[in-house]
């Protein structure tokens, strides 16, 4: 196995251009499971863990190499909330935002956050940088728009951030679970509401009818909340698997989204 240990981002991008087939290693929490179970035998590895350029965090731009441990205490409430639900302390100290995005699991816990905020993924290669909005980036189960020679370098968030953001997920225990369903709800003071659901479709799902309906409600009562939950349940596209049935996920999606919205309304 050939190991490439770039000391800065330019070196990493040059290495990736020369070896587009190389495996990228940051936190290792996904890759090393495959390695340990002999599902993958990397021939070339590019080490990213210590690249300083991927560690920068500002309000609008979060470096791809930032670990969930760091995000636990960040500016964005829903991002901090979801970071705290990921794996265990050991996993959060290693796993990165960029890794969660690159793996593009339907259950990736950061994905609803990105979807709800219409975040862009910053992709860099030797030839430059482009930004791809989440819905053009996540193409299917573990399928993304990342091209050979490209590296996820950051997440770009909009300047118009919501006044309330809430995340929650459902799993069998509160640690080390893969989400059965997850939800991010965002609400602005002017009523604008966004809902993004995870683990209930191949890619994150925006419940746009529920958003439209709730954005017109300045002081929603029980009937509006019930209709909101119903619309969310209708808009998700879950499957049945060993973690939960499609029916359960559909029901849980509405309950989760409604509960998070209620938290925002109570503020």
């Amino acid at each position: 196995m050939e190991v490439i240990h770039p000391t800065d981002l330019d070196e990493a991008l040059a290495a990736l251009a020369a070896h587009p087939e190389a495996v990228l290693l940051a936190g290792g929490t996904d890759l090393m499971v495959e390695v340990n179970f002999d599902q993958i035998r990397p021939e070339k590895v590019i080490l990213l863990r210590r690249l300083a350029e991927l560690q920068d965090v500002s309000r609008q731009r979060i470096g791809a190499g930032v670990t969930f441990r760091r995000l636990e205490s960040g500016d964005h409430q829903a991002l901090a909330q979801l970071a705290r639900t990921i794996g265990s302390p050991q996993i959060r100290a290693a796993g990165t935002l960029g890794g969660n995005i690159g793996t593009a699991s339907p259950a990736g816990d950061a994905l609803p956050f990105l979807a709800g905020l219409d975040a862009e993924i910053e992709l860099s290669s030797k030839d430059g940088t482009r930004r791809v909005r989440w819905d053009r980036f996540f193409l299917g189960v573990k399928q993304t728009a990342l091209r050979p020679g490209e590296l996820i370098t950051a997440v770009i968030l909009p300047t118009d951030l919501p006044d309330c953001q809430e995340f929650a997920k459902i799993g069998q225990r509160s640690a080390m679970v893969i989400s059965i369903a997850s939800a991010c709800v965002f609400r602005w003071r002017d009523g604008r509401t966004r809902v993004a659901m995870g683990s209930v479709g191949p890619t994150p799902i925006r419940a746009r009818q529920a958003e439209e309906m709730m954005s017109a409600e300045s002081n929603p009562g029980p009937a509006a909340l019930q209709e909101f939950a119903r619309l969310v349940s209708e808009e998700v596209r879950p499957i049945s698997d060993h973690r939960g049935t499609a029916d359960y996920r559909r029901h849980a999606s509405g309950v989760l989204a409604r509960r998070l919205l209620e938290r925002c309304l109570a503020k």
């Binding site: 196995m1 290693l25 290792g28 050991q90 290693a94």
Partner: peptide, 20 residues
């Protein structure tokens, strides 16, 4: 579990070459 550069991690998920 080990402490790697000040962080508690699972050493099974660290590639040995990345600990150089």
């Amino acid at each position: 579990s080990v402490v790697l550069d000040g962080n508690l991690v699972c050493s099974c998920l660290v590639m040995a070459v990345d600990a150089a």
